[in-house]
């Protein structure tokens, strides 16, 4: 259980994290979602006691991180896969970590086995691919067999196979009853892995709720209809109790229909003899809807608006 309470972090006049409160419960994957620069990594560093909050507190099973005895056995974290000395072998990296928390060397071999790095354990970590570095980071997080795990953007830059492997390992860890917190700037990624979401923007909490609920709200399938007889169509749809929104696309009046199928809209239009210029299902609106939600909370906007997908990386 991670409890974040009124956490605030200021760097000079910039507020990176702003009165943030949320909790992460065991037995599920909790997604920590927000656009780049929203304060996810800063929050995670404060959870681990690496950065000092300006105000507020974080408790791990009721205690501040700094008061944990042998903390690697309580919380495992992968914040950055590149935090390894490039000239040190993977095994030596894990061995010094294990030693600090009085973990047996046997654990090092076990976690290397778990992540599939046994064969390259004695090679220098600097020569590892991103996928291998990520696996080493996960091995380090699992070293103390902790109840709580945190991963910061673990799938960034990975190939599909690597992404799938990370998703599976996170879900397995949660199904074992552990607390798993995973950050991402991609809602589509979180929709695949997380059961619950903590959504933040500009350091502020936007929403903590179930992923299904968030996705439903954010992306209720919409149908776009353009017609020269917009008024008649709207009346007809209203009569059927269908929700309609007005929009202007390319200077022509457009209806956005929510909560029905394109077939139904087409049939209603035909019955009324209404001419349609467009009848299309708006897919992939998940990211867009997410961006809309976090829009005011985005730190930097592209010049032509923020409606294109945010596919950048944090670094």
């Amino acid at each position: 259980m991670i409890e974040v309470e009124h956490l605030t972090k200021r760097y000079g006049r910039t507020v990176a994290v702003d009165d943030l409160s949320f909790s992460v419960r065991p037995g599920r994957v909790t997604g920590f979602l927000g656009p780049n620069g929203a304060g996810k990594s800063t929050t995670m560093r404060m959870i681990l006691g690496l950065d000092r909050p300006t105000s507020g507190a974080v408790r791990i099973d009721g205690k501040p991180y700094r008061e944990l005895d042998r903390p690697l056995t309580r919380v495992g974290a992968l914040l950055d896969a590149k935090w390894v000395h490039p000239n040190r072998s993977a095994r030596a990296h894990l061995r010094w970590m294990a030693r600090t928390n009085r973990l047996p060397n046997r654990r090092v071999d076990e976690v290397l086995e778990t992540v599939g790095l046994s064969g390259v354990a004695d090679r220098r970590a600097g020569g590892f691919s991103l996928g291998m570095s990520q696996r080493l980071g996960i091995a380090a997080a699992l070293l103390g067999d902790p109840e709580i795990l945190m991963f910061d953007e673990p799938v960034n830059g990975l190939d599909p196979e690597g992404i799938l492997w990370i998703r599976q390992i996170m879900q397995r860890l949660a199904s074992e009853g552990r607390t798993v917190l995973v950050s991402s700037h991609l809602l589509s990624e979180m929709a695949q892995t997380a059961e619950e979401l903590v959504v933040i923007g500009r350091g502020k909490l936007i929403r903590q709720c179930g992923t299904a609920q968030f996705v439903d709200e954010a992306s209720g399938a919409t149908i776009r209809v353009r017609s020269p007889q917009v008024e008649r169509l709207r009346g007809a749809l209203h009569q059927q109790g269908i929700e309609v929104r007005d929009e202007v696309v390319d200077e022509s009046p457009t209806l956005v229909v929510v909560g029905t199928s394109s077939e139904r809209v087409g049939e209603i239009a035909a019955a009324q003899g209404v001419v349609l210029h467009e009848l299309s299902i708006q897919r992939g609106s998940l990211e867009q809807a997410f961006l809309q939600l976090t829009n005011e909370a985005v730190e930097y906007h592209a010049h032509n608006g923020a409606t294109t997908g945010n596919e950048g990386t944090d670094r």
């Binding site: 935090w83 490039p86 600090t100």
Partner: peptide, 22 residues
């Protein structure tokens, strides 16, 4: 300084959050 350069100081402080002992 190499520990700061390669980020292992953070891992070190994560393992020993009291910092001074390590």
């Amino acid at each position: 300084t190499t520990e700061y350069r390669f980020g292992t100081m953070r891992t070190t402080f994560q393992a020993v959050p009291g910092r001074t002992p390590v």
